[in-house]
Nucleic acid binder design. Structure first.
Length: 644
RNA sequence: GCGCCCAUAGCUCAGGUGGAUAGAGCACCGGCCUUCUAAGCCGGGAGUCAAGGGUUCGAAUCCCUUUGGGCGCGCCA
């Protein structure tokens, strides 16, 4: 697949080689090093390059003089006639005006490549492990998880299009205090069927269940209080063995069911395991609503040797760190934790070591193995990242909530340490890239939606998707995905449920989808009237300035994808599509009277239909990349929707 | 106290790794449907790019300081 930009870059690259021979430029440039931009002003031409600026320093000349000497060489090298004119402008820009053949060829490029148009190879098949969501399987996903999920999934799609070899992975936190607490909460409901039935009845009416009055006795103060916990118990109640066991346990710490496992056992009770498995299933169902699939679900239990066939990698890596003096034992208790069990010595990772580059150095050494021998979350994460790199990935990307930012340099330090320990210089902190996703503030009509943290009375991701679904079944997913992608990751996002339901430009997803539907309906009509040209027709009759602009705009999709992938910014694709549709809607409306797509003249009609086909292809490809549906038609919604 | 992120039109936000006269949407005002979707288009006003300094041919963009907002600094995950 050759694209317009590749042709022009190739041309300019040849020109730099020729100019080098003539002594007009200090060096030649490879195509990939040549920047092409679209000038803001149409009068500046179709494309502009700043390569003379780039070379001016090396030449010790001023950019303008270089450009003056270089421009004629560009004309000379252009044997295919892609360029209509070259102008030197401003302090040293080269402004290119393309020939009709050149910009018209972009329509043909799109139709030839079809579904593959937009692919490019800036990734060079680099093997990337992209970890995202990794929400604890202790409850339903909320909106913040949803944002990370959409960002990660779209980034994976974009990077794959740009030639990266991406594996997506969800890390299941199915070990530790939280899972133990989940099990305990479910266990309480499980052994009290009467209380459970009563509470479920109240919840079903949409009322809150007061804590602790109508909760089971001994329900933990810091337990999970949401209705979904009782529902989970209700579902598990079908397992008679489990219920029998639950009833025999007089307390959650009852040692009779504590299995011998390195994490203390509370998270290894059958109830805990069944509970997180159920929550994970639900999370997977929520992800499916957003059309998100993972290549891998990586179980933390595996790192602790709890899954069949696995070994205790956490203890292993801790031992290796101690042996290499990257970790040490220390008996001191945390000052602020007086009733800590005065057990043995804890093991600390030397995150503050001066062997680590400053950027990856921690402010204090962190505990990896607690005094009682149980590993911390951090220890598991060390083993996890050791495992990731050992699997042979070139690059790791973690999408995390912004509240984890304090964790980032620590983790990079770990990779540095593991690299030194293994004597592998390629394991550096640079190989881990963390994308922090800022918070989502959920609003309804401009007012914050109250979220009870403790009570579990919060709006779930699924609630949001449901509420935002208006017409088509996928419309909730489409709106949520697109709106999440309209912000870059490091900006906080206000998500207004009312706005998300609207079908105006408040909600650009419908603007873009409408563009696609409109293009489809033009083609449908043309087909009915037998006016469709053959697919390989060359649109030489395109002549309007608006048509030139559209042809140039569609040629940019591969550039946008390359940029979005490199910068890890999928939102650029969303903005590109919005801009492209704006151009199309404008073209369509402006020429309603004087130059309709399907007109008298066959040559013009055919050329315009080719452009319409290409536009539909580009918008369709772009929407697919964002995981948003591209409808063939959209029927007007009833008026009543808007009024209330 | 230390660290990270953010600050651009009345509001919500873009701004292609330092480039030409800083752009959209919403809101407000005025126009456009017997035709291939008005979920659309055309026109109008609106800015000390938070403030100050620095780097250079050139800064919304890079560096420092200040102010204002968000978040983090556990033997939690």
């Amino acid at each position: 697949m050759t694209t317009l930009h590749e042709r022009i870059r190739g041309l300019l690259s040849r020109a730099t080689a020729a100019a080098l021979a003539e002594g007009a430029l200090p060096q030649a440039l490879a195509p990939r090093d040549i920047q092409l931009e679209r000038p803001r002003q149409a009068s500046h031409g179709d494309m502009a390059t700043n390569l003379c600026f780039a070379l001016a320093k090396a030449a010790g000349k001023n950019p303008r003089a270089l450009a003056d000497a270089f421009a004629p060489i560009v004309r000379q090298v252009d044997t295919d006639g892609w360029i209509q004119s070259v102008a030197v402008a401003g302090p040293g820009f080269l402004n290119l005006r393309l020939s009709d053949a050149a910009w018209q060829a972009s329509v043909t490029d799109v139709l030839n490549a079809a579904g593959d148009f937009g692919r490019c190879d800036v990734g060079g098949s680099e093997r990337v492990l992209l970890e995202f969501v990794s929400a604890n399987p202790t409850g339903p996903m909320h909106v913040g998880h949803g944002r990370g999920a959409v960002l990660g999934d779209t980034l994976a799609r974009v990077m794959r299009h740009a030639g990266f070899d991406v594996t997506t992975e969800y890390y299941i936190n199915n070990v530790g205090n939280q899972v133990g607490k989940l099990g305990e909460s479910v266990w309480c409901w499980l052994r009290e069927p009467e209380a459970r039935a009563a509470a479920l009845g109240v919840w079903a009416k949409g009322d809150p269940v007061p804590f602790p009055d109508q909760f089971p006795k001994d329900f933990p103060e810091d337990g999970y209080r949401g209705a979904y916990i009782a529902e989970c118990a209700e579902a598990l109640a079908e397992d008679e063995l489990l219920v029998a066991q639950a009833r025999q346990m007089t307390s959650w710490e009852d040692p009779r069911w504590a299995s011998d496992n390195p994490t203390g056992g509370l998270d290894n009770r059958l109830v805990s395991i069944r509970a997180w498995q159920m929550q994970l299933k639900r999370i997977q169902a929520d992800l499916a609503l957003l059309d998100i699939q993972f290549n891998e679900f990586f179980s933390e239990r595996r790192l602790h040797g709890l899954d069949p066939g696995s070994h205790d990698a956490v203890k292993d890596v801790a031992r290796r760190l101690v042996a290499a003096d990257w970790a040490y034992e220390d008996a001191s208790q945390p000052a602020d934790d007086e009733d800590a069990t005065p057990a043995g010595k804890a093991i600390f990772f030397r995150g503050t070591s001066e062997l680590l580059p400053k950027a990856f150095r921690d402010t204090k050494d962190r505990v990896i193995i607690r005094g009682d021998g149980r590993p911390t979350y951090f220890a598991a994460d060390i083993a996890y990242h050791d495992n990731k790199l050992a699997r042979g990935f070139d690059h790791l990307i973690n999408v995390l909530g912004a509240d984890h930012h304090g964790y980032v340099s620590r983790l990079k330090g770990v990779i540095e340490a593991l690299g030194k320990l293994r004597g592998d210089a390629r394991w550096t902190g640079e190989r881990l890239e963390v994308i922090l996703v800022q918070m989502v503030a959920l609003l309804r009509d401009g007012k914050p939606v109250p979220m009870g943290k403790r009570s579990g009375e919060f709006v779930t991701l699924r609630d949001v998707i449901d509420e935002v679904t208006t017409g088509e079944p996928t419309s909730g997913r489409d709106a949520v995905r697109f709106l999440f992608l309209m912000r870059k990751a490091d900006a906080q996002l206000d998500f207004d449920l009312e706005v998300a339901r609207r079908t105006s430009m408040d909600n650009p997803v419908y603007y873009v989808q409408y563009g696609h539907a409109r293009l489809c309906s033009i083609l449908e009509r043309a087909e009915k009237e037998g006016r469709l040209p053959p697919l390989d027709a060359v649109p030489t009759a395109l002549a309007l300035e608006d048509e030139r602009a559209l042809a140039l705009a569609i040629a940019e999709l591969p550039e946008v994808i390359a940029r979005a992938a490199r910068a890890r910014e999928p939102h650029q694709v969303a903005y590109y599509l919005t801009d492209l549709c704006r151009a199309f809607h404008g073209y369509y409306s402006r020429h309603k009277a004087d130059a309709r797509v399907i007109g008298e003249d066959d040559a013009e009609t055919h050329a315009r239909l080719q452009l319409v086909r290409a536009l539909k292809q580009v918008i369709g490809n772009g929407l697919r990349l964002l995981g948003v549906s591209a409808p063939e038609r959209m029927n007007a919604l009833p008026e009543t929707e808007a009024g209330e």
